[in-house]
Write a protein that binds this DNA or RNA. Structure first.
Length: 484
RNA sequence: GGCGGUAUCGUCUAGGGGACUAGGACGGAGCCCUCUCAAGGCUCAAACACGGGUUCGAAUCCCGUUACCGCUACCA
Protein backbone atom coordinates (compact mmCIF):
# COMPACT_ATOMS: atom_id res chain seq x y z
CA UNK A 1 0.00 0.00 0.00
CA UNK A 2 1.40 3.40 -0.94
CA UNK A 3 1.62 5.98 1.82
CA UNK A 4 -1.94 7.12 2.49
CA UNK A 5 -2.69 10.67 1.44
CA UNK A 6 -6.15 11.90 2.38
CA UNK A 7 -7.69 15.29 2.19
CA UNK A 8 -10.48 17.32 3.67
CA UNK A 9 -11.89 19.71 1.08
CA UNK A 10 -14.45 22.14 2.50
CA UNK A 11 -16.00 25.08 0.69
CA UNK A 12 -15.43 28.25 2.66
CA UNK A 13 -19.03 29.36 2.44
CA UNK A 14 -20.00 29.47 6.10
CA UNK A 15 -18.40 28.07 9.19
CA UNK A 16 -17.02 24.66 9.98
CA UNK A 17 -20.17 22.59 10.04
CA UNK A 18 -20.38 19.61 12.41
CA UNK A 19 -20.87 17.33 9.39
CA UNK A 20 -17.71 18.65 7.78
CA UNK A 21 -15.87 18.45 11.07
CA UNK A 22 -16.77 14.80 11.39
CA UNK A 23 -15.65 14.03 7.84
CA UNK A 24 -12.38 15.79 8.60
CA UNK A 25 -12.09 13.78 11.81
CA UNK A 26 -12.49 10.44 10.05
CA UNK A 27 -9.88 11.43 7.46
CA UNK A 28 -7.54 12.57 10.21
CA UNK A 29 -8.04 9.43 12.29
CA UNK A 30 -7.28 7.24 9.29
CA UNK A 31 -4.06 9.06 8.54
CA UNK A 32 -2.86 9.22 12.14
CA UNK A 33 -3.63 5.53 12.50
CA UNK A 34 -1.99 4.28 9.32
CA UNK A 35 0.60 6.96 8.78
CA UNK A 36 0.63 9.28 5.80
CA UNK A 37 -0.57 12.80 5.19
CA UNK A 38 -3.78 14.61 6.02
CA UNK A 39 -4.15 17.50 3.60
CA UNK A 40 -6.43 20.47 3.52
CA UNK A 41 -7.88 21.95 0.37
CA UNK A 42 -10.11 24.99 0.36
CA UNK A 43 -12.59 24.75 -2.49
CA UNK A 44 -12.92 28.43 -3.13
CA UNK A 45 -13.78 28.36 -6.81
CA UNK A 46 -17.19 29.82 -6.10
CA UNK A 47 -15.90 33.33 -5.52
CA UNK A 48 -19.33 34.77 -4.89
CA UNK A 49 -19.94 32.54 -1.90
CA UNK A 50 -16.42 32.17 -0.55
CA UNK A 51 -15.15 34.47 2.13
CA UNK A 52 -11.90 35.01 3.92
CA UNK A 53 -13.75 34.84 7.23
CA UNK A 54 -15.10 31.39 6.68
CA UNK A 55 -11.73 30.11 5.58
CA UNK A 56 -10.32 31.33 8.86
CA UNK A 57 -13.26 29.81 10.75
CA UNK A 58 -12.47 26.44 9.19
CA UNK A 59 -8.83 26.64 10.27
CA UNK A 60 -9.83 27.69 13.78
CA UNK A 61 -12.41 24.95 14.04
CA UNK A 62 -9.96 22.25 13.01
CA UNK A 63 -7.29 23.59 15.31
CA UNK A 64 -9.71 23.70 18.21
CA UNK A 65 -10.66 20.09 17.62
CA UNK A 66 -6.99 19.16 17.51
CA UNK A 67 -7.03 18.06 13.87
CA UNK A 68 -3.70 19.24 12.52
CA UNK A 69 -2.92 18.98 8.84
CA UNK A 70 0.20 18.32 6.85
CA UNK A 71 1.81 20.37 4.07
CA UNK A 72 0.61 23.68 2.70
CA UNK A 73 -3.11 24.35 2.45
CA UNK A 74 -4.21 24.09 -1.18
CA UNK A 75 -6.52 26.76 -2.53
CA UNK A 76 -8.45 25.36 -5.42
CA UNK A 77 -8.91 28.74 -7.01
CA UNK A 78 -5.15 28.96 -7.55
CA UNK A 79 -5.19 25.89 -9.78
CA UNK A 80 -7.33 27.23 -12.60
CA UNK A 81 -4.53 26.86 -15.15
CA UNK A 82 -4.05 23.19 -14.42
CA UNK A 83 -7.80 22.57 -14.48
CA UNK A 84 -7.97 24.09 -17.94
CA UNK A 85 -4.95 22.16 -19.12
CA UNK A 86 -6.51 18.91 -17.97
CA UNK A 87 -9.67 19.76 -19.87
CA UNK A 88 -7.49 20.54 -22.87
CA UNK A 89 -5.85 17.11 -22.60
CA UNK A 90 -9.25 15.45 -22.55
CA UNK A 91 -10.35 17.32 -25.66
CA UNK A 92 -7.04 16.52 -27.38
CA UNK A 93 -7.49 12.83 -26.58
CA UNK A 94 -11.01 13.03 -27.90
CA UNK A 95 -12.45 12.05 -24.52
CA UNK A 96 -14.35 15.31 -24.38
CA UNK A 97 -15.94 17.59 -26.94
CA UNK A 98 -17.08 21.17 -27.36
CA UNK A 99 -20.77 21.87 -26.87
CA UNK A 100 -22.26 25.00 -28.41
CA UNK A 101 -25.72 24.56 -26.92
CA UNK A 102 -26.61 27.54 -24.79
CA UNK A 103 -27.96 27.31 -21.27
CA UNK A 104 -31.25 28.70 -22.50
CA UNK A 105 -31.59 26.05 -25.21
CA UNK A 106 -30.75 23.33 -22.74
CA UNK A 107 -33.34 24.62 -20.30
CA UNK A 108 -35.94 24.65 -22.99
CA UNK A 109 -35.24 21.08 -24.01
CA UNK A 110 -35.15 19.96 -20.40
CA UNK A 111 -38.54 21.54 -19.74
CA UNK A 112 -40.00 20.05 -22.88
CA UNK A 113 -38.80 16.60 -21.88
CA UNK A 114 -40.25 17.07 -18.45
CA UNK A 115 -43.58 18.11 -19.92
CA UNK A 116 -43.62 14.85 -21.86
CA UNK A 117 -42.75 13.06 -18.60
CA UNK A 118 -39.50 11.90 -20.08
CA UNK A 119 -36.09 11.85 -18.49
CA UNK A 120 -33.92 14.49 -20.04
CA UNK A 121 -30.52 13.42 -21.22
CA UNK A 122 -28.21 15.41 -23.39
CA UNK A 123 -28.62 14.09 -26.94
CA UNK A 124 -24.95 14.57 -27.92
CA UNK A 125 -25.89 16.69 -30.88
CA UNK A 126 -22.71 18.74 -30.61
CA UNK A 127 -20.64 15.56 -30.57
CA UNK A 128 -21.97 14.87 -34.06
CA UNK A 129 -20.74 18.15 -35.47
CA UNK A 130 -18.08 17.73 -38.11
CA UNK A 131 -14.54 18.78 -37.32
CA UNK A 132 -14.86 21.54 -39.90
CA UNK A 133 -18.03 22.86 -38.35
CA UNK A 134 -16.50 22.88 -34.89
CA UNK A 135 -13.42 24.69 -36.22
CA UNK A 136 -15.63 27.20 -38.01
CA UNK A 137 -17.64 28.02 -34.88
CA UNK A 138 -14.57 28.26 -32.71
CA UNK A 139 -12.96 30.60 -35.23
CA UNK A 140 -16.13 32.65 -35.31
CA UNK A 141 -15.93 33.04 -31.57
CA UNK A 142 -19.09 31.10 -30.75
CA UNK A 143 -18.98 30.38 -27.01
CA UNK A 144 -18.84 26.75 -25.99
CA UNK A 145 -18.70 24.54 -22.94
CA UNK A 146 -16.78 21.29 -22.86
CA UNK A 147 -18.56 18.01 -22.22
CA UNK A 148 -17.08 14.69 -21.22
CA UNK A 149 -18.04 11.86 -23.53
CA UNK A 150 -19.25 9.07 -21.24
CA UNK A 151 -18.22 5.72 -22.72
CA UNK A 152 -20.42 2.63 -22.87
CA UNK A 153 -20.31 0.08 -20.10
CA UNK A 154 -20.49 0.27 -16.37
CA UNK A 155 -18.51 2.14 -13.76
CA UNK A 156 -18.01 0.49 -10.42
CA UNK A 157 -15.77 0.67 -7.40
CA UNK A 158 -15.34 -1.14 -4.13
CA UNK A 159 -16.30 1.45 -1.57
CA UNK A 160 -14.58 1.10 1.80
CA UNK A 161 -17.85 1.51 3.62
CA UNK A 162 -20.51 0.37 1.15
CA UNK A 163 -18.79 -2.42 -0.74
CA UNK A 164 -19.21 -2.58 -4.51
CA UNK A 165 -21.33 0.17 -6.04
CA UNK A 166 -21.99 0.09 -9.77
CA UNK A 167 -23.55 2.60 -12.15
CA UNK A 168 -24.53 1.76 -15.71
CA UNK A 169 -22.85 4.42 -17.83
CA UNK A 170 -25.99 4.92 -19.87
CA UNK A 171 -27.48 6.63 -16.81
CA UNK A 172 -24.71 9.19 -16.77
CA UNK A 173 -25.16 12.20 -18.99
CA UNK A 174 -22.31 13.64 -21.00
CA UNK A 175 -21.64 16.11 -18.24
CA UNK A 176 -20.08 19.52 -18.66
CA UNK A 177 -16.52 19.79 -17.34
CA UNK A 178 -15.70 23.33 -18.43
CA UNK A 179 -18.11 26.24 -18.53
CA UNK A 180 -18.26 28.58 -21.47
CA UNK A 181 -16.53 31.17 -19.31
CA UNK A 182 -13.54 28.86 -19.07
CA UNK A 183 -13.96 27.79 -15.45
CA UNK A 184 -14.10 24.12 -14.50
CA UNK A 185 -17.10 22.35 -13.06
CA UNK A 186 -16.77 20.89 -9.58
CA UNK A 187 -16.16 17.28 -10.62
CA UNK A 188 -13.40 18.32 -12.99
CA UNK A 189 -11.64 20.56 -10.49
CA UNK A 190 -11.81 17.93 -7.78
CA UNK A 191 -10.32 15.19 -9.91
CA UNK A 192 -7.62 17.45 -11.28
CA UNK A 193 -6.67 18.50 -7.74
CA UNK A 194 -6.88 15.05 -6.22
CA UNK A 195 -4.55 13.75 -8.92
CA UNK A 196 -2.13 16.62 -8.38
CA UNK A 197 -2.21 16.09 -4.62
CA UNK A 198 -1.65 12.35 -5.13
CA UNK A 199 -4.66 11.45 -2.99
CA UNK A 200 -4.90 7.71 -2.34
CA UNK A 201 -8.22 7.55 -0.50
CA UNK A 202 -11.09 9.93 -0.99
CA UNK A 203 -13.17 9.88 2.18
CA UNK A 204 -16.17 12.18 2.01
CA UNK A 205 -19.89 12.47 2.64
CA UNK A 206 -22.14 9.94 0.93
CA UNK A 207 -23.96 12.75 -0.84
CA UNK A 208 -21.06 12.40 -3.29
CA UNK A 209 -21.80 8.80 -4.23
CA UNK A 210 -23.38 9.74 -7.51
CA UNK A 211 -20.48 12.03 -8.37
CA UNK A 212 -18.05 9.18 -7.98
CA UNK A 213 -18.65 7.34 -11.27
CA UNK A 214 -18.17 10.60 -13.14
CA UNK A 215 -14.95 11.24 -11.31
CA UNK A 216 -13.67 7.71 -11.90
CA UNK A 217 -14.32 8.16 -15.61
CA UNK A 218 -12.30 11.36 -15.50
CA UNK A 219 -9.35 9.70 -13.74
CA UNK A 220 -9.28 7.00 -16.38
CA UNK A 221 -9.57 9.40 -19.28
CA UNK A 222 -6.73 11.41 -17.80
CA UNK A 223 -4.62 8.26 -17.48
CA UNK A 224 -4.37 8.58 -13.71
CA UNK A 225 -4.64 5.94 -11.01
CA UNK A 226 -8.10 5.82 -9.49
CA UNK A 227 -7.94 6.28 -5.71
CA UNK A 228 -9.92 4.32 -3.16
CA UNK A 229 -13.23 5.75 -2.02
CA UNK A 230 -14.99 5.73 1.32
CA UNK A 231 -18.38 7.40 1.58
CA UNK A 232 -19.36 8.22 5.11
CA UNK A 233 -22.96 8.87 6.14
CA UNK A 234 -24.51 12.28 6.67
CA UNK A 235 -25.59 13.85 9.94
CA UNK A 236 -29.26 14.68 10.32
CA UNK A 237 -31.23 16.77 12.82
CA UNK A 238 -33.71 15.40 15.34
CA UNK A 239 -36.42 15.44 12.68
CA UNK A 240 -34.40 13.20 10.36
CA UNK A 241 -33.68 15.94 7.85
CA UNK A 242 -30.24 17.10 6.84
CA UNK A 243 -28.76 19.10 9.68
CA UNK A 244 -29.29 22.80 9.13
CA UNK A 245 -29.55 26.10 10.92
CA UNK A 246 -33.09 25.55 12.08
CA UNK A 247 -31.92 22.58 14.13
CA UNK A 248 -29.95 25.03 16.26
CA UNK A 249 -26.20 25.20 16.44
CA UNK A 250 -24.48 23.55 13.49
CA UNK A 251 -21.07 25.21 13.59
CA UNK A 252 -18.40 23.69 15.80
CA UNK A 253 -17.63 27.22 16.98
CA UNK A 254 -21.12 27.41 18.47
CA UNK A 255 -20.39 24.43 20.68
CA UNK A 256 -17.06 25.85 21.69
CA UNK A 257 -18.86 28.93 22.95
CA UNK A 258 -21.44 26.83 24.73
CA UNK A 259 -18.65 25.39 26.83
CA UNK A 260 -18.20 22.06 25.10
CA UNK A 261 -14.70 20.62 25.42
CA UNK A 262 -12.95 19.78 22.15
CA UNK A 263 -12.22 16.29 23.42
CA UNK A 264 -15.93 15.76 24.05
CA UNK A 265 -16.93 17.20 20.69
CA UNK A 266 -14.53 14.97 18.84
CA UNK A 267 -15.58 11.94 20.86
CA UNK A 268 -19.25 12.59 20.26
CA UNK A 269 -18.77 13.27 16.54
CA UNK A 270 -16.71 10.13 16.08
CA UNK A 271 -19.46 8.00 17.58
CA UNK A 272 -21.93 9.49 15.13
CA UNK A 273 -21.32 7.04 12.34
CA UNK A 274 -18.41 5.10 13.72
CA UNK A 275 -18.03 2.53 16.44
CA UNK A 276 -14.91 0.78 17.67
CA UNK A 277 -17.08 -2.27 18.26
CA UNK A 278 -18.21 -3.43 21.66
CA UNK A 279 -19.25 -0.96 24.33
CA UNK A 280 -16.47 1.62 24.16
CA UNK A 281 -17.84 5.14 24.33
CA UNK A 282 -15.78 7.68 26.23
CA UNK A 283 -12.43 7.97 24.49
CA UNK A 284 -9.57 10.39 23.97
CA UNK A 285 -8.35 11.33 20.52
CA UNK A 286 -5.32 9.10 21.01
CA UNK A 287 -7.49 6.16 21.92
CA UNK A 288 -9.64 6.75 18.85
CA UNK A 289 -6.55 6.78 16.64
CA UNK A 290 -5.61 3.45 18.16
CA UNK A 291 -9.06 1.96 17.57
CA UNK A 292 -10.00 3.54 14.25
CA UNK A 293 -10.90 1.38 11.28
CA UNK A 294 -13.11 1.96 8.27
CA UNK A 295 -14.75 -1.35 9.18
CA UNK A 296 -16.46 0.43 12.05
CA UNK A 297 -17.98 3.06 9.78
CA UNK A 298 -21.76 3.08 9.63
CA UNK A 299 -23.74 3.19 6.38
CA UNK A 300 -26.78 5.03 7.58
CA UNK A 301 -27.16 8.68 8.46
CA UNK A 302 -26.91 9.55 12.14
CA UNK A 303 -29.10 11.96 14.02
CA UNK A 304 -27.36 14.63 16.05
CA UNK A 305 -28.60 14.42 19.64
CA UNK A 306 -27.52 17.45 21.69
CA UNK A 307 -28.50 15.67 24.92
CA UNK A 308 -25.89 13.02 24.42
CA UNK A 309 -23.30 15.64 23.56
CA UNK A 310 -23.99 17.32 26.91
CA UNK A 311 -23.61 14.04 28.73
CA UNK A 312 -20.41 13.33 26.85
CA UNK A 313 -19.11 16.75 27.82
CA UNK A 314 -19.87 16.06 31.47
CA UNK A 315 -17.87 12.87 31.22
CA UNK A 316 -14.90 14.66 29.71
CA UNK A 317 -15.18 17.50 32.19
CA UNK A 318 -14.84 15.16 35.17
CA UNK A 319 -11.96 13.34 33.53
CA UNK A 320 -9.99 16.41 32.51
CA UNK A 321 -7.44 17.57 35.11
CA UNK A 322 -8.09 21.00 36.59
CA UNK A 323 -4.83 22.30 35.19
CA UNK A 324 -6.09 21.61 31.66
CA UNK A 325 -9.49 23.15 32.39
CA UNK A 326 -8.02 26.26 34.00
CA UNK A 327 -7.21 28.17 30.77
CA UNK A 328 -10.81 27.67 29.66
CA UNK A 329 -12.36 28.57 32.99
CA UNK A 330 -10.28 31.60 33.91
CA UNK A 331 -11.55 33.98 31.21
CA UNK A 332 -15.10 33.21 32.32
CA UNK A 333 -14.19 33.80 35.96
CA UNK A 334 -12.78 37.17 35.01
CA UNK A 335 -15.81 37.96 32.90
CA UNK A 336 -18.07 37.10 35.83
CA UNK A 337 -15.95 39.50 37.92
CA UNK A 338 -15.21 36.88 40.52
CA UNK A 339 -11.47 37.47 40.44
CA UNK A 340 -8.62 38.81 38.35
CA UNK A 341 -6.14 36.50 36.62
CA UNK A 342 -3.46 37.66 39.06
CA UNK A 343 -5.57 36.80 42.08
CA UNK A 344 -6.23 33.36 40.68
CA UNK A 345 -2.59 32.81 39.85
CA UNK A 346 -1.59 33.86 43.36
CA UNK A 347 -3.42 30.93 44.88
CA UNK A 348 -3.29 28.50 42.01
CA UNK A 349 -3.34 25.33 44.09
CA UNK A 350 -6.50 26.43 45.85
CA UNK A 351 -8.02 27.48 42.52
CA UNK A 352 -7.28 24.15 40.86
CA UNK A 353 -8.78 22.29 43.81
CA UNK A 354 -11.90 24.43 43.46
CA UNK A 355 -12.18 23.54 39.78
CA UNK A 356 -11.82 19.87 40.65
CA UNK A 357 -14.55 20.27 43.22
CA UNK A 358 -17.01 21.92 40.85
CA UNK A 359 -16.33 20.16 37.57
CA UNK A 360 -18.08 16.98 38.63
CA UNK A 361 -21.39 18.81 38.67
CA UNK A 362 -20.80 20.62 35.37
CA UNK A 363 -22.00 19.76 31.89
CA UNK A 364 -20.50 22.84 30.27
CA UNK A 365 -17.38 24.82 31.14
CA UNK A 366 -19.58 27.72 32.20
CA UNK A 367 -21.32 25.58 34.82
CA UNK A 368 -18.11 25.64 36.84
CA UNK A 369 -18.21 29.41 36.97
CA UNK A 370 -21.91 29.48 37.79
CA UNK A 371 -21.22 27.50 40.95
CA UNK A 372 -18.07 29.40 41.89
CA UNK A 373 -19.49 32.62 43.34
CA UNK A 374 -19.65 31.57 47.02
CA UNK A 375 -15.94 30.81 47.17
CA UNK A 376 -14.92 34.35 46.32
CA UNK A 377 -15.04 37.56 48.32
CA UNK A 378 -18.16 39.27 47.00
CA UNK A 379 -21.37 38.89 48.96
CA UNK A 380 -23.85 36.41 47.64
CA UNK A 381 -27.60 36.57 47.08
CA UNK A 382 -29.90 34.03 48.68
CA UNK A 383 -32.07 32.04 46.34
CA UNK A 384 -35.61 32.75 47.37
CA UNK A 385 -36.66 29.15 47.16
CA UNK A 386 -33.67 27.98 49.20
CA UNK A 387 -34.22 30.53 51.96
CA UNK A 388 -37.91 29.78 52.16
CA UNK A 389 -37.37 26.07 52.42
CA UNK A 390 -34.44 25.86 54.82
CA UNK A 391 -34.89 29.01 56.87
CA UNK A 392 -38.59 28.51 57.29
CA UNK A 393 -38.67 29.80 60.88
CA UNK A 394 -36.07 32.57 61.03
CA UNK A 395 -35.64 32.57 64.78
CA UNK A 396 -35.05 28.84 65.04
CA UNK A 397 -32.81 28.85 61.99
CA UNK A 398 -30.76 31.70 63.40
CA UNK A 399 -30.45 29.87 66.67
CA UNK A 400 -28.96 26.78 65.05
CA UNK A 401 -26.77 28.83 62.75
CA UNK A 402 -25.38 30.74 65.71
CA UNK A 403 -24.40 27.52 67.45
CA UNK A 404 -22.93 26.22 64.22
CA UNK A 405 -20.91 29.38 63.89
CA UNK A 406 -19.54 28.99 67.39
CA UNK A 407 -18.47 25.43 66.73
CA UNK A 408 -16.76 26.36 63.49
CA UNK A 409 -15.09 29.45 64.91
CA UNK A 410 -13.12 27.42 67.41
CA UNK A 411 -12.78 24.21 65.44
CA UNK A 412 -9.31 22.65 65.26
CA UNK A 413 -8.13 21.41 62.90
CA UNK A 414 -10.06 22.84 59.92
CA UNK A 415 -10.68 19.48 58.29
CA UNK A 416 -13.73 17.64 56.98
CA UNK A 417 -13.37 15.01 59.70
CA UNK A 418 -13.32 17.55 62.51
CA UNK A 419 -16.20 19.49 60.99
CA UNK A 420 -18.33 16.43 60.60
CA UNK A 421 -17.71 15.34 64.16
CA UNK A 422 -18.44 18.75 65.62
CA UNK A 423 -21.61 19.35 63.65
CA UNK A 424 -23.03 15.90 64.19
CA UNK A 425 -22.41 16.35 67.87
CA UNK A 426 -24.31 19.58 67.75
CA UNK A 427 -27.21 17.92 65.99
CA UNK A 428 -27.33 15.24 68.64
CA UNK A 429 -27.22 17.75 71.46
CA UNK A 430 -30.09 19.65 69.96
CA UNK A 431 -31.98 16.50 69.10
CA UNK A 432 -32.30 17.26 65.38
CA UNK A 433 -31.33 15.34 62.28
CA UNK A 434 -27.93 16.31 60.91
CA UNK A 435 -29.58 17.49 57.72
CA UNK A 436 -31.35 20.16 59.75
CA UNK A 437 -27.95 21.65 60.43
CA UNK A 438 -26.37 21.03 57.06
CA UNK A 439 -29.07 22.43 54.83
CA UNK A 440 -29.51 25.82 56.55
CA UNK A 441 -25.73 26.05 56.71
CA UNK A 442 -25.51 25.36 53.00
CA UNK A 443 -27.88 28.22 52.28
CA UNK A 444 -25.91 30.54 54.54
CA UNK A 445 -22.64 29.60 52.87
CA UNK A 446 -23.68 29.39 49.23
CA UNK A 447 -27.10 31.01 49.01
CA UNK A 448 -28.23 27.87 47.24
CA UNK A 449 -29.82 24.60 48.22
CA UNK A 450 -27.45 22.72 45.93
CA UNK A 451 -23.70 22.52 46.33
CA UNK A 452 -20.85 20.07 46.81
CA UNK A 453 -20.70 18.26 50.14
CA UNK A 454 -20.97 20.78 52.95
CA UNK A 455 -17.54 20.01 54.42
CA UNK A 456 -15.91 20.33 51.04
CA UNK A 457 -17.59 23.69 50.74
CA UNK A 458 -16.23 24.78 54.09
CA UNK A 459 -12.72 23.67 53.23
CA UNK A 460 -12.77 25.39 49.84
CA UNK A 461 -14.21 28.54 51.34
CA UNK A 462 -11.84 28.80 54.25
CA UNK A 463 -12.74 29.65 57.82
CA UNK A 464 -12.61 33.40 57.48
CA UNK A 465 -15.01 33.65 54.56
CA UNK A 466 -17.27 30.95 55.97
CA UNK A 467 -17.69 32.84 59.26
CA UNK A 468 -18.37 36.05 57.41
CA UNK A 469 -21.08 34.36 55.33
CA UNK A 470 -22.59 33.01 58.55
CA UNK A 471 -22.60 36.47 60.11
CA UNK A 472 -24.31 37.89 57.05
CA UNK A 473 -26.92 35.15 57.15
CA UNK A 474 -27.57 35.77 60.84
CA UNK A 475 -28.02 39.46 60.24
CA UNK A 476 -30.41 38.65 57.40
CA UNK A 477 -32.41 36.31 59.61
CA UNK A 478 -32.47 38.70 62.57
CA UNK A 479 -33.33 41.85 60.73
CA UNK A 480 -34.86 40.78 57.48
CA UNK A 481 -33.57 40.84 53.93
CA UNK A 482 -32.61 44.53 53.90
CA UNK A 483 -29.90 44.08 56.50
CA UNK A 484 -27.87 41.53 54.64
C1' G B 1 -39.97 10.36 -12.89
C1' G B 2 -34.83 8.06 -13.50
C1' C B 3 -30.44 6.43 -10.98
C1' G B 4 -27.96 5.41 -6.46
C1' G B 5 -27.82 4.65 -1.16
C1' U B 6 -29.94 3.17 3.61
C1' A B 7 -33.19 0.40 7.09
C1' U B 8 -31.84 -3.03 15.15
C1' C B 9 -35.19 0.44 21.29
C1' G B 10 -37.36 7.82 20.74
C1' U B 11 -31.63 8.68 19.72
C1' C B 12 -26.21 6.73 19.13
C1' U B 13 -24.97 1.75 18.49
C1' A B 14 -23.14 -3.95 19.50
C1' G B 15 -24.30 -7.92 16.40
C1' G B 16 -21.44 -10.30 10.66
C1' G B 17 -26.05 -18.16 10.26
C1' G B 18 -26.75 -21.39 16.09
C1' A B 19 -23.56 -18.27 22.22
C1' C B 20 -30.28 -13.58 21.11
C1' U B 21 -34.89 -14.48 26.38
C1' A B 22 -31.27 -9.21 20.77
C1' G B 23 -26.29 -6.39 24.62
C1' G B 24 -24.36 -1.30 25.94
C1' A B 25 -24.97 4.14 26.07
C1' C B 26 -28.07 8.86 25.95
C1' G B 27 -32.89 10.28 27.28
C1' G B 28 -37.36 8.51 30.49
C1' A B 29 -39.35 5.95 35.11
C1' G B 30 -37.98 3.96 39.90
C1' C B 31 -34.70 2.33 43.84
C1' C B 32 -29.91 2.56 46.52
C1' C B 33 -25.99 5.67 48.34
C1' U B 34 -26.66 10.41 51.00
C1' C B 35 -26.25 16.75 54.31
C1' U B 36 -28.46 18.78 48.91
C1' C B 37 -27.29 18.31 43.75
C1' A B 38 -24.31 15.87 40.54
C1' A B 39 -21.37 11.52 40.01
C1' G B 40 -21.77 6.27 40.95
C1' G B 41 -24.54 1.48 41.62
C1' C B 42 -29.04 -1.35 40.67
C1' U B 43 -33.97 -2.17 38.33
C1' C B 44 -37.87 -1.22 34.68
C1' A B 45 -40.25 0.35 29.92
C1' A B 46 -38.36 0.47 24.87
C1' A B 47 -36.06 -2.24 18.63
C1' C B 48 -34.39 -6.45 14.36
C1' A B 49 -39.64 -1.82 8.62
C1' C B 50 -42.87 -5.49 5.84
C1' G B 51 -43.36 -9.90 2.65
C1' G B 52 -41.18 -13.86 0.29
C1' G B 53 -37.18 -17.14 -0.22
C1' U B 54 -32.11 -19.92 0.95
C1' U B 55 -31.00 -23.09 5.32
C1' C B 56 -31.84 -28.20 10.03
C1' G B 57 -31.49 -23.00 11.80
C1' A B 58 -31.72 -15.94 10.00
C1' A B 59 -31.32 -9.53 13.08
C1' U B 60 -27.30 -11.64 10.19
C1' C B 61 -27.43 -14.25 3.13
C1' C B 62 -30.79 -13.37 -1.54
C1' C B 63 -35.20 -11.10 -3.91
C1' G B 64 -39.35 -7.87 -3.75
C1' U B 65 -42.32 -3.99 -1.26
C1' U B 66 -42.45 0.26 1.65
C1' A B 67 -40.25 4.44 3.90
C1' C B 68 -36.38 7.81 4.24
C1' C B 69 -31.96 10.23 2.17
C1' G B 70 -28.82 11.81 -1.93
C1' C B 71 -27.86 12.89 -7.07
C1' U B 72 -30.41 14.02 -11.51
C1' A B 73 -27.26 22.19 -13.33
C1' C B 74 -22.54 25.68 -17.82
C1' C B 75 -24.03 24.58 -8.05
C1' A B 76 -20.46 22.71 -4.83
Amino acid sequence: MPTPRLRFAPSPTGYLHVGGARTALFNWLFVRKHGGQFLLRIEDTDKARSTEDSTRAIFEGLEWLGLDWDEEVVHQGANLDRHQQDVGRLVARNAAYRCFCTAAELDERRNAAEARKETFTYDRRCDRLSADEVARRVAAGVPYAVRFRVPDGETAWDDAVHGVIAFPNKDIDDFVILRSDGTPIYNMAVVSDDIAMRITLVMRGDDHISNTPKQILLYRALGADVPEFAHVPMIHGLDGKKLSKRHGATAVGDYRHQGILPSAMVNFLALLGWSPGGDREVMSLDEMVELFSTDGLQKKAAIFDPKKLEWMNGQHLTRTPAAALEPLVTPLMVEAQLATPDQLAARRDWYLALIDLLKVRARAVGDIVKQAGPYFEADIPYEEQAARQHWKEPAAAADLLRLTREKLASLEPWTPEAMEQALRELAEQRGVAAGKIFQPLRVALTGMSVSPGIFEVLVAMGRKLALRRLDNALRWLDQGPQAA
